[in-house]
Amino acid sequence: MILFVPQLKAAPVSSMLPVLYPPPPFLIPRWPKGQIKDEACWSDKEYCTTTKNWYCFSKTEAESEAFEFAKRTGLDVVTVCPTLILGPLLQPAVNASSLVLIKLLKEGYDSLENKHRSIVDVRDVAQALLLVYEKPEAEGRYICTAHSIRARDLVDKLRSIFPNYNYPKSFIEVGEEDMLTSEKLQKLGWSYRPLEETLVDSVESYRKAGILD
């Protein structure tokens, strides 16, 4: 999605992926280990191609090219980089983000890695997009994330609200993971709804669409 008025401002939606994969330790410069990632962190395109992470490469290339285009033309480009987007569906088809939650409800995994999930509601992403577009002081990139939660805790929360689904049976512990901050976006005036509201509205919309039958 892009909000755009010729010769004024463009506000494209990017992704967390152009933020998550900075140069690895053997490349300089690199992101300090353990430091929370903010808008200054860019995924390394060469590393993405070496590891064949083509989706991340394409997202990083698209966002960086948007800023290069802005430099050449004078267009004011501001990007929003959301994490995993959940919330009620507008369309009957299941998208990749919603599938993450649907699989937690239906698949009945024997085991699942206890990874962090950084979640934001689709309605809050829409609010962020309007905010950066309308605020004259908005500039550069804005990470858009609301809740960071481990898979086990997410399943426990879902089970407490919706007990009758086929949840993962066990979890495999993993090491420390990179964290993101949306402090810059919040300073612009952005706020987000509670995680429980997002989960309830998501599941109810899946039920209504017959996805969980």
Score class of each variant (00 low, 15 high):
1 M>A: 13
3 L>C: 03
5 V>G: 00
12 P>E: 09
18 P>W: 03
27 L>N: 11
30 R>H: 14
35 Q>Y: 07
37 K>T: 10
39 E>H: 12
42 W>K: 05
43 S>C: 07
43 S>T: 07
45 K>N: 06
47 Y>R: 10
48 C>I: 08
48 C>P: 12
49 T>H: 04
54 W>V: 09
56 C>H: 12
57 F>N: 08
63 E>V: 09
64 S>E: 15
67 F>N: 05
68 E>F: 09
75 L>V: 03
76 D>V: 03
77 V>K: 08
80 V>F: 03
81 C>L: 07
81 C>E: 10
88 P>D: 02
95 N>H: 06
98 S>T: 13
101 L>S: 03
103 K>A: 13
107 E>V: 09
110 D>K: 10
115 K>I: 13
116 H>Y: 09
123 R>G: 03
124 D>F: 00
131 L>E: 08
140 G>A: 04
141 R>C: 08
146 A>E: 02
151 A>C: 15
151 A>N: 09
151 A>L: 14
161 I>R: 05
166 N>D: 14
172 I>F: 06
180 L>C: 12
180 L>S: 04
181 T>M: 09
181 T>R: 03
191 S>A: 13
193 R>Y: 03
196 E>A: 07
197 E>C: 12
198 T>D: 11
201 D>R: 00
201 D>T: 06
202 S>W: 04
203 V>H: 05
208 K>W: 08
